[in-house]
Each structure stands twice: as C-alpha cells, then as structure tokens.
Simulated assay, not measured.
Amino acid sequence: MSSLTAYDAFANRLGDWTTTPVVFENEFYQLPDTPAPFVYVEVYGDTYDQDTVGAPQENVWLERGVTYLHVMTPSGQGSRLARQYANSLLYLFREQPISTLFMPDMSIGAGEPGKDWPGYWAMTASIFWNRRDITSIPTP
C-alpha cells in the first residue's frame, strides 16, 4: 500500500469529482438497487527506495506507485460512458502535480481492459506516479 501522503493527495484531489460517487478501498458502499455509475479507487505504492546515500535521517526516498480508478457502469450499456468518465478523471491529474507526487504516465484500459462484475462493467484508468520524500524516517 502507498504512504499516507500519497493516499491523502489522491483522496483530496478526487474530492473535486462530483459526477459520480467515489469509493476508496475498504470503504463500505451500498450498491443501489438499480445499477448506477460510481468510481472505485485503489492507491498502491509499489516501491519505497532510497534515492541517495547520506547521513542517517538525511536520505531522500523515492516512492513509486499506481492509482487505479475503476469506473463502474451498468452492464450491457457499452463502454462509451465509462471511457468518458475515465478520461475526465485523468484530466483532474494531467499536468497538475499534487503534493509531492509526479504523474508521468496514465492510461485507460491498459492492463485492465474491462471486467464484468454482477450488474456492472469496469473500465480502469491508471495513474503511475512517483514521490520524493526528503523528510526523515516517517514516524508511526
């Protein structure tokens, strides 16, 4: 899982999204009786590597990760609406760094081209990111 800094940065920016509900990993969400679009978000930190060699507590750390924005739409209605929402979501982040995150690569459907879930179909927008942490070792 990602650092709290990365998670909070994405959560804060996604607060600007008002088109559909946004649900983060391990949050309770009551699916409506009639399927309606929503976005399911997963924020992963893949690595947390030392980027410099310095005195203790003076190193720079590089965290790399990916954020998945699963655009959930009702099954059987095609992929156009999901693609439209995925593209709009990515525009919240394109050329707009947040906090200490840099997002050089984004995709729609790469690796997760679309999945069926009971009553839903998912189109995934992926944001690959990195973050330099120039603070000392994080405290728990």
Results as ranks from 00 to 15, higher is better:
Q30H: 10
G54N: 12
P32T: 04
S99C: 13
P97G: 00
V39H: 09
W61Q: 01
D46W: 12
P113T: 04
F102T: 14
P118D: 15
T73S: 07
Y68D: 06
Y40C: 02
P21K: 09
F128Q: 14
G119W: 06
G109K: 10
A125K: 06
N26W: 07
P56I: 08
Q84G: 01
Y48H: 12
A36L: 12
V60F: 10
T100D: 05
G119Q: 12
Y68A: 05
N26E: 10
Q77L: 15
E27M: 09
Q96Y: 04
Y29L: 01
T18N: 12
H70Y: 13
F24Y: 15
N130G: 04
A86L: 15
V22Y: 06
A122V: 15
M72V: 04
Y44I: 11
N12T: 15
T19V: 14
P113M: 09
V22E: 06
P118S: 11
E27H: 08
T34W: 09
P104K: 07
Q30N: 07
S107A: 14
Y29T: 01
P21H: 10
T19M: 11
D33F: 07
P97L: 02
E25L: 07
T20L: 02
Q57P: 01
M103P: 03
I98L: 07
E58G: 01
D16Y: 02
M106P: 04
T100I: 08
G45P: 06
V43N: 04
V41G: 03
V53P: 00
F24I: 05
W117T: 02
G78L: 09
G54C: 07
Q77H: 14
Y68F: 12
E42M: 07
S79T: 14
I134S: 03
Q57F: 14
P104A: 04
P56Y: 11
T18G: 08
K115E: 10
G111F: 06
T67W: 09
P97V: 05
Y85G: 02
T20M: 10
E25A: 04
V43H: 05
A36N: 03
Y68L: 10
M72F: 03
S79P: 13
P32A: 03
Q50L: 11
S126H: 00
L81P: 09
P113Q: 03
P21R: 13
T100G: 00
V23S: 00
R64F: 08
D105M: 12
I127Y: 02
W17H: 01
P138F: 11
L89D: 05
E27T: 10
T20D: 04
Y40G: 00
E27C: 06
F93K: 02
L89N: 09
E95F: 06
P118Q: 10
F38H: 05
W121S: 03
R83S: 08
V41H: 05
Q57S: 12
D16F: 02
T67Q: 02
D49F: 07
E63P: 03
P21G: 00
R83Q: 06
I98Q: 03
M106D: 09
Y40T: 00
V66T: 15
F128Y: 15
T124Y: 08
G65Y: 15
